[in-house]
Structure formats: structure tokens, C-alpha cells
Design a protein around this nucleic acid. Structure first.
Length: 556
RNA sequence: AGGGCUGUAGCCAAGCGGUAAGGCAUCUGGUUUUGAUCCAGUGUACCGCAGGUUCGAAUCCUGCCAGCCCUGCCA
């Protein structure tokens, strides 16, 4: 039955279910939804879910809705709905029709709650929160029935109307489903359906003072929107019994083609945290610069860091979908962004820890050189760089004497190729009082521009540089993992295990061609890594390192 | 004797009774004006463990072990 292959993306258990459902004509199309609560910014775990839901809709020529699950006005805010819309669109997905809100259906929810009351399946309960907890029992012991459990439908209808009209106080009572106080599923022990909240809602204003709970609102919202496959994470597996109970007890939805819930495992990434609560805390405690700090696993943070939507979608595809509790390594995330940027990023040179070089035998001041924008893609054209009497190279690319035979950089009396330019040889170096090199004096071979030495001598090393008089000063932000341990959640206090070196700031120079570089556009600083101009730095040249180049040096 | 799930190489993950895909990482060569890219090659995975059914089991059955989730008027 699961033999209907969908080309393109890898198989997973949800695709198998969909293939079966389509083959059996349980559904004639696929309709999914992405249902975030607007109480925080989206992170890469949400990106996994977005790619799953929208990807399924694309592959099966179905539809995917974007629905804000806004049933709790005390935690939600328009700032979050705006950022979520932006992030989903940025990832490259189009939702079906208008944006939906669970709050669009508040009137219908009220009607369905009344239907349950009329059927004797829901009641208004006056136990307070603490009593309610006591009556619920424990994992090992059955709960006890509420004293209000057997009041009549007429009485409950009246009470529920009073709740709605604001005649009952917040916390005084709730509407509960009448299911089974002895169930081994805690969520079936007469769960709360509605609570009283005198709060202004970002969509419905002050119209309501009762708000539905997730378990009641979500399944009905799915059913109203004709969702076929309602995908969520593993912790909702028990809740599925309640999802089914609600729909099965409502006349409008008790039919074979109603939505069904399936659960997959959420994304855990090494060296970071993925819960909105913890991300909120990092922002509130000023441990990062905001939700879009480039070290954050948020979509806005990754975007500012220089990640592309294509890379994130590739990431989602490569990690797959399953029900296994897993911890994904950073290596996959780094692999996808390198793959993407390697293809599209223009090459440039930047020196982040400059040391001055004087070419002693150079006549004149400086000359222009045409360098490829991408050595493997000629179609990207050329850029103008400069070479002259004074240059900058990176401090790490010079040593007085080569430390070992594998050393391929500049050393006294040793030749090296300056990338895109000439072969130079170091003759001497000045040092300051502390012994740090201040200036390196070299000679260059004028016959080696664009060609190897005519005498056949081999120069293996290549280092990058920028010509001093035309160089643009720039600031570089070098990011590292946010936490110092693989799984910060395991620490007693996750903030205590933050990586104190997650950001290093350097001052140096970039090629003049970068004068008008765009924010969020990727550049490869050759031999260093992929960078992008920060999207909040204004006129100052500030570059965020997206990811370093792969470095197998030392292993070879 | 509470319930719901999950266990396939270092990590992610296909597989659904016919003799273990793929990706990442690793390692080895080759190309290279990026120690990058690219190309070629590279893995004895007691398929959590132990029994059983079968001509044949990662796939079916039984028992066990380990991990995750569930006692919000959060989602």
C-alpha cells in the first residue's frame, strides 16, 4: 500500500500514511497546516515543521494553511504574529488563502461547546485550581468525580452563558469535558475546555472573556479548515485521544474524512536550546542582543547570521522525519549552508587581523587586477582588486620560520602566492617591543601574475591580502556555538553553561569592491569563510561570519 | 503490574518476511592561484537484549532492558 513513491524527497512514515490514505480514498487531497502560537519568534525547529507541512502540500499538490493558534491572550502579541508571517514567507512558502486565526472560530467553538453540554458531555465546574488538581488523582491513582459533574445540561447551558457574559469571576469556574476520571490518559480526566479570562485579545479585542483551551480549539479548527493530516510533535501523543474524542462527539465532524493527528519528533540541535521559554529567557536576561542575535537558533537569527532559506529547506530535508528522540549535530547545519553558499557566494578577500607588508622592489604605488568573482563559475564575471607597494595580510599567515614541513604560508626567505596576484618572498620583518611583527618586507616576482614561474619552481602556498591604500576598514564578528556543552538542557542552570567566547570582534580591511555590499547577501572571504553584511549596522562595514570554510588542515 | 511512544554505523535516517539505501562526519588518493571546492575510493552496523515462529526475521510473536513524554484554568 505504501508503494506509491513520491519523487524528490526522502520517504518517511507520514508520507507512507498519506500514500495509504490517498490510495484508500480516505482523503482525495492533502491539506495541512502550520499552527504557531504567536508567543515568541520562530526557531529552526519550527522551520522543520514548516518545511514538512508546506512541503507535503507542494509535493501532493495540496494546500497548507498558516493558522495562528491564539487561544491564550495573556501570552500572545502582534509583534510575534508579524515576525512569524515574515519568517514563513522568507522561507519561501505560500499559505493557502488568508491567514487564519483560531480566534476566527470563537463563535463556532462556543456553539460546539454548547452541543457537548446538551449531550451531557460537558459541565461547568466550580472546583478551584488546587481542588481540581487534588481531584485529578495521580499517574498511579484514579481521580475523583467533581461534585458538579452531574448537573443538568440546562443548568450547565445557563452557567456557561454566564461565563461568557462575564457574570462569573476569573478562576471561579471552568467548562470541563465529562470523560473519565479514571483514565490512564491524564488528559482524559475531565479536561478543561474553557476558562474565564478578562483580557484584551490581539484579534478579538474585548469581545470575549472566556477562551477555549488548546485541546478543544485545535482539533475543531483543523476540522473547520478541512485539514486532512494534522502534524505535531511527540509530546501531543496522549492528547490525540482527546483530539479524537472531541471530533467524534460533534455531529459536524464525526465522519471518516475528518482530520487525524500524527506526531513526529521535534528537532534538538547540539550546543543550543530550542524551547521558546528558554529563548525568551536569553533575550530577557540580555544574554543575547535579541531574538535575531546571529547566535540564536531563531529563523531571524539565522537569517541575520547569513543562512539562506534554501539551506534551511535543505537542512529539513536532510534530517528527515521520524519518531525517534534525536539530537542533531551542528555538522549537518554547517554542511547545508556551505553547500549553498559555495555555489552562490561571490569571492572576495578580507584581512581580519592585519599586518602590513611592504613590497620593496615594487615601482609606483598600485595597479588594478581583474580577479574572478567565482573561480568555478566564469559566468559570474570579474571584479577589480588592487596590488601595490603596501598591502595587508593576516597575522596568522606569517611566521619567521616555518614550524614544520607542511607549512604553506609566508616565512622569511620563503615564497608564497598572493591570491589573484603575484608570488612574493619575505626578506625581513620589524617587530615591536613585545616582539610582535609590525611590518614584513618582501620582494615580488613581476613575471608571476596569472602564471607560474617560468623557471619551473613550485610555489604551493597561497595567502590572501588587500592593497593598503584602497582597503576599506571593516569590523568582523566571529560567531561560535552559543553553549559550551552539547545538551544545555541537561545542565542545572542552562545559562551557566553559555559559551563565553561565542562572539569575537575583529578589526581589519576588506576589498574596495565591498563598499556597497548588501545586508544578508553572502560573500566568501577567501580562505576564511562565508560572511554577510550585518542587517543592522548602517554605514559601518560590519560583517557577520556565517560559517568558516571546511578545515581539514592538520588531519592531512 | 499506571499509560503513551521510541531503540538500524559517531550523528540523522530508509527499510514493513527474501538476506542492511542515502546524507553528514571520518579516512585514503587525484585535481586545484582558497590547506576550500570538485572527483574517485573508504564502514564486519551481534538492526537494544534474550527466546520463539519460519526454508528464510531488522521486519511476525513473547519476555526483558534503556531513553523520552503525560498529574496547566499553557501550547
Amino acid at each position: 500500500m505504501s508503494k506509491v513513491e513520491t519523487v524528490g524527497r526522502p520517504a518517511n512514515f507520514i508520507r507512507n500514511i498519506i500514500n495509504d490514505d490517498l490510495a484508500n480514498h480516505k482523503h482525495e487531497m492533502v491539506h495541512t497546516r502550520f499552527p504557531p502560537e504567536p508567543n515568541g519568534y520562530l526557531h529552526i525547529g519550527h522551520a522543520k515543521s514548516i518545511c514538512l507541512n508546506f512541503g507535503l502540500a507542494e509535493d501532493y499538490q495540496g494546500q497548507c494553511n498558516l493558522r495562528f493558534d491564539d487561544t491564550n491572550p495573556s501570552k500572545e502579541d502582534m509583534e510575534y504574529v508579524d515576525s512569524i508571517k515574515k519568517d514563513v514567507a522568507w522561507l519561501g512558502f505560500e499559505w493557502a488563502g488568508d491567514i487564519r486565526y483560531s480566534s476566527n472560530y470563537f463563535d463556532q467553538f462556543y456553539g460546539y461547546a454548547c452541543e457537548l453540554i446538551e449531550k451531557g458531555l460537558a459541565y461547568v465546574c466550580f472546583l478551584n485550581a488546587e481542588e481540581s488538581r487534588e481531584f485529578r488523582g495521580t499517574l498511579r491513582e484514579a481521580g475523583k468525580n467533581s461534585p458538579h459533574r452531574d448537573s443538568s445540561p440546562a443548568e450547565n447551558l445557563d452557567l456557561f452563558a454566564k461565563m461568557k457574559n462575564g457574570d462569573l469571576k476569573e478562576g471561579e469556574c471552568v467548562l470541563r469535558a465529562k470523560i473519565d476520571m479514571t483514565s490512564s490518559f491524564m488528559c482524559l480526566r475531565d479536561p478543561t475546555l474553557y476558562r474565564v479570562r478578562f483580557e484584551t485579545h490581539h484579534q478579538t479585542g474585548d469581545k470575549w472573556c472566556i477562551y477555549p483551551m488548546y485541546d478543544f480549539a485545535h482539533c475543531i479548527s483543523d476540522a473547520i479548515e478541512n485539514i486532512t493530516h494534522s502534524l505535531c510533535t511527540l509530546e501531543f501523543q496522549d492528547n490525540r485521544r482527546l483530539y479524537d474524542w472531541v471530533l467524534d462527539n460533534l455531529n459536524d465532524f464525526n465522519k471518516p474524512d475528518r482530520p487525524h493527528q500524527y506526531e513526529f519528533s521535534r528537532l534538538n540541535l547540539e550546543y543550543t536550546v530550542m524551547s521558546k521559554r528558554k529563548l525568551h529567557q536569553l533575550v530577557d536576561d540580555n544574554l543575547v542582543s535579541g531574538w535575531d542575535d546571529p547566535r540564536m537558533p531563531t529563523i531571524s537569527g539565522l537569517r541575520r547570521r547569513g543562512y539562506t532559506a534554501a539551506a534551511l529547506r535543505d537542512f529539513a530535508e536532510r534530517i528527515g522525519i521520524s519518531k525517534v528522540d534525536s539530537m542533531t549535530g551542528m555538522d549537518i547545519l554547517e554542511a547545508v549552508i556551505r553547500d549553498d553558499l559555495n555555489k552562490i557566494a561571490p569571492r572576495t578577500m578580507a584581512v581580519m587581523d592585519p599586518i602590513k607588508v611592504v613590497i620593496e622592489n615594487y615601482e609606483g604605488e598600485c595597479e588594478s587586477i581583474q580577479a574572478p568573482i567565482h573561480p568555478q563559475n566564469e559566468a559570474m564575471g570579474k571584479r577589480e582588486i588592487f596590488f601595490g607597494k603596501e598591502l595587508y595580510i593576516d597575522r596568522a599567515d606569517f611566521a619567521e620560520v616555518a614550524p614544520n614541513g607542511k607549512y604553506q604560508r609566508l616565512a622569511l626567505d620563503k615564497e608564497v602566492r598572493l591570491r589573484n596576484a603575484y608570488i612574493v618572498k619575505a626578506v625581513r620583518a620589524d617587530t615591536d617591543a613585545e616582539g610582535n611583527f609590525t611590518t614584513i618586507y618582501c620582494t615580488y616576482d613581476p613575471e608571476t601574475l596569472g602564471k607560474n614561474p617560468a623557471d619551473g619552481r613550485k610555489v604551493k602556498g597561497v595567502i590572501h591580502f588587500v592593497e593598503a591604500s584602497k582597503a576599506l576598514p571593516a569590523v568582523f564578528r566571529i560567531y561560535d556555538r552559543l553553549f559550551s556543552v552539547e545538551n544545555p538542557v541537561k545542565a542545572d542552570d542552562f545559562e551557566s553553561v553559555l559559551n563565553t567566547d561565542s562572539l569575537a570582534v575583529k578589526q581589519g580591511f576588506v576589498e574596495p569592491g565591498l563598499a556597497n555590499s548588501e545586508a544578508e547577501k553572502a560573500y566568501q572571504f577567501e580562505r576564511e569563510g562565508y560572511f554577510c553584511r550585518d542587517n543592522q549596522s548602517g554605514d559601518v562595514q560590519v560583517y557577520n561570519r556565517t560559517v568558516a570554510l571546511r578545515d581539514t588542515w592538520g588531519t592531512k
